[in-house]
Amino acid sequence: MTPLLCLPGMMCDARLFAPQIAGLSGGRMVACMDISRHATVAALAEAVLREAPPRFALAGLSMGGIVAMEVLRQAPERVERLALLDTNPLAELPEVQAGRAAQVARAEGGDLGAMMADTFVPRYLARPDPEIARMCEAMALDLGPQVFVRQSLALRDRPDQCATLAGFDGPTLILCGAQDALCPVARHELMHGLMPHAEYVVIGGAGHLPTLETPDIVTEALRQWLT
């Protein structure tokens, strides 16, 4: 079976995909890759490719989807199939870029945990979920402020990947939560327009983290995409 590589969102690790890793690992190599060590999307994609098998299925959520698009741009011949979850193919808007400096300053000033709780996690979920919120804060604190800084810079300076997506005709899944406030449904409609062959799934009752909010639905969508 084709190996499956999962790329997590900003300040997340393998816990983001824990239900899917458990559900899809029978007879298949499933790995969550590290996208925390570099400050550009290009360098993060290069690192994934250095550690990846020769050919693989690739699933990325949020920032992980952004890195997945760059992996596809750099080495399209190695990506057998692509799943883009709650992500954005566009370069960052100037008004969003402008807000990064204050967030970086908070992280470097020791305020990462509070910033996750008051700024990020409330926008992740379609409805409050204390268990998922605690997990998100724990993942961020385990990764630490320097990872926050590197990932913020990588997101701030990322390229537009619309042409990359339009050039890929392999099996593709585009999936998002209907209540995603960070990467809204319109971004996924844009991607589906670029990749009309893709399976397109919008999950009601889910926000930015459907892998945790509606894990069984996401696992089944990925299973069908893989087979």
Rank of each mutant, 00 (worst) to 15 (best):
H197Q: 14
A105L: 12
C136R: 00
C162M: 13
A206H: 13
L222Y: 10
P8M: 01
A43S: 12
L173C: 09
G23E: 01
P128H: 07
M115F: 05
A47Y: 12
C12R: 02
A154W: 04
L222G: 05
I35H: 03
Q146F: 07
C162R: 15
P171H: 09
R150F: 02
S25T: 05
E131Y: 00
M139D: 02
V147S: 04
M139P: 00
N88S: 11
E92L: 05
V48F: 10
Q103R: 06
A59W: 03
D169G: 15
T172D: 07
P94Q: 11
L44P: 11
A14H: 11
V185S: 14
R187S: 11
G207M: 11
G99W: 14
L175P: 08
P159R: 05
P53S: 13
L175H: 10
N88L: 08
L212P: 04
C183Y: 11
L85S: 08
L226G: 03
A14L: 04
H192R: 14
L125R: 01
R100D: 09
P171N: 10
A91T: 08
F120H: 06
R127H: 11
A75V: 15
S152L: 14
A45T: 12
I203V: 15
A47Q: 14
A107R: 06
S25P: 00
G170R: 12
